[in-house]
Amino acid sequence: MSDSSEDFFALPAFAPEQALQQLRRWLREQRALSERGASFTLAGSEVLRLGVQGAVLEVQLAKRPAQSPEWELQRCTQAADVRRVKDEITRRLRRWSEDD
Results as ranks from 00 to 15, higher is better:
Gly37Tyr: 07
Gln60His: 09
Glu72Val: 15
Thr41Trp: 02
Val82Trp: 07
Ala32Phe: 08
Gly54Leu: 04
Asp7Thr: 06
Gly37Val: 10
Phe8Glu: 14
Arg24Val: 08
Leu73Phe: 02
Thr90Gln: 07
Glu88Asp: 08
Ser68Lys: 13
Leu61Val: 14
Glu98Arg: 07
Pro12Tyr: 01
Val52Asn: 01
Ser34Pro: 00
Ser97Met: 03
Leu33Ala: 08
Met1Ala: 13
Gln30Ile: 02
Arg31Tyr: 06
Arg92Asp: 06
Gly54Tyr: 08
Pro65Arg: 00
Arg83Phe: 03
Gln60Cys: 01
Arg28Ser: 13
Gln18Arg: 14
Arg31Pro: 01
Ser45Asn: 11
Gln74Thr: 14
Val85Arg: 02
Arg92Asn: 14
Ala55Asn: 10
Pro65Ala: 03
Asp7Gln: 10
Gln18Ser: 14
Ser5Pro: 00
Gly51Cys: 02
Val82Asp: 08
Phe9Met: 06
Ala79Gln: 13
Glu35Leu: 04
Val82Phe: 06
Glu58Ala: 12
Ala15Ile: 04
Gln53Thr: 06
Glu88Gly: 00
Val59Met: 03
Ser5Gly: 00
Asp99Ser: 13
Thr90Glu: 05
Ser4Trp: 06
Ala10His: 07
Glu17Phe: 12
Ser68Phe: 09
Arg84Glu: 15
Ser34Arg: 15
Gln21Pro: 00
Leu42Asn: 01
Glu70Met: 15
Phe40Pro: 00
Ala15His: 12
Phe14Met: 01
Val59Ile: 14
Thr77Leu: 07
Leu27Ile: 02
Leu27Met: 01
Ala15Phe: 05
Ser39Asn: 09
Thr41Cys: 07
Gly44Leu: 05
Ser2Ala: 14
Asp87Met: 07
Trp26Ile: 01
Lys63Asp: 10
Asp81Ala: 14
Val82Tyr: 04
Ala62Phe: 13
Phe9Gln: 04
